[in-house]
Design a protein around this nucleic acid. Sequence first.
DNA 1: CCAAAAGTGTTTAGTATACACCCATGG
DNA 2: CCATGGGTGTATACTAAACACTTTTGG
Lengths: 235, 235
Amino acid sequence: MTGTQHFMLDQYKQQHPYLVALDSIILGFDGDNLKVLLVKRGVNEETWSLMGGWLQPDETLDRAANRILFELTGLNDVYLEQLHAFGDPHRDPITRTVSVAYFALIKVGTDESGLSDAYQAQWFSVYELPHLLFDHAQMIELALKRLRYKAAHQPIGFELMPEKFTIPQLKKLFDAIYNTDFDRRNFSRKILSTGLLIKLDEKQKGFSKKGAYYYQVDKEKYQQASESLLSFIAN
Amino acid sequence: MTGTQHFMLDQYKQQHPYLVALDSIILGFDGDNLKVLLVKRGVNEETWSLMGGWLQPDETLDRAANRILFELTGLNDVYLEQLHAFGDPHRDPITRTVSVAYFALIKVGTDESGLSDAYQAQWFSVYELPHLLFDHAQMIELALKRLRYKAAHQPIGFELMPEKFTIPQLKKLFDAIYNTDFDRRNFSRKILSTGLLIKLDEKQKGFSKKGAYYYQVDKEKYQQASESLLSFIAN
DNA sequence: CCAAAAGTGTTTAGTATACACCCATGG
DNA sequence: CCATGGGTGTATACTAAACACTTTTGG
């Protein structure tokens, strides 16, 4: 037994360790456009970067991603899921790094105050990105694909909406995600048929003359729907 | 510039590096059941393991996964895609290791001869697994979820079939994947309506009295379909 | 009172499900 | 000649897409 263990340890010792980073694609919706939150890197004035950090010895990957997200946004209960591990030997020119990318969906406007000043964070339209560090552009692209895919199959879109929202607002989100223009009437019917929305007695004022009813997500049903779908879908 | 660079290097030097492993969930179909290929670990006679290995300094993750798969199976052109990164601090009790899991779909029976003897590999039904190393059971479970999900949305199932196959055989595969019993007639129509299959002039003999026609995948159309779907779906 | 946005209804086409029926052939 | 598995057809129910019409209200 001890012999075997020693043999194993030797096997392990021969291997090269690498730094493991986490990068988060933080997506938000401002009412018109799908946005991604980027931070400024000291390296180059014109290079932006995803929010990232290093994996610490006592952390799981999920936990590390949550910690890093919290450091920037001050938010804790955020939709966050692992996207993909990136490990090109030259992706980081300084040293070999494997980065596990996560994507987060947050409700913009809910609480911008939590945004840490330390990182000089800024929202960018996902269709007009600045020059990005390393393979971060690739990561964002993949995150968008995943979002599009998932939003079509599960009620993930609500994660990007505020607590109260109108159907026309929700349609705008889907239009932005798919970069298209859904039929107002069919969209409304389809969304309501999920039974996940609760109609409130309050109408939106100031935008349109008639005013649209506010809705909120039926958290219980949403939970169930997410679970039944998530157990079926990967992750 | 050099100042900045030095600063960055210091930042990097403070970080802890970890071993990065790759583990492959190799799935196959023997005509009746969905199987996973496991190897015996020296540690314990009764513990089996996924085929795995270490990330080498010059490799991308995909390349490393392919290499490791080749070492075991001798196969090169195999469906292989990244599944998920696993990084629990205690998943490997010997040392902290982050493992990037891949899942592979191979055509069983095509060429068993390539299987390296060095690893004592064996096929297990995915519904009757032995005791597994670390978090490998979890990895297999996730791979199955992903397979179920993907097979429902893209023509990925063919990767598990031999070059020539009959519709009833393909139905058996889908029955095995979903652990259900699809309607023979509707299944046939649905599959054929994809236009991805080419009917051959040959019938299967020995199994049924009438004999079922063999089909093969229309590689060109399959390629297109995969691309259009893959560009939409994550990864 | 009208323009603009919101909400409801209807028609039509396409797809999925369930099931009935015929075909081919080895024993 | 019939049991068994393979192949084709059809009636019905859903679901999705396209589009017309009515409602509300600020200016």
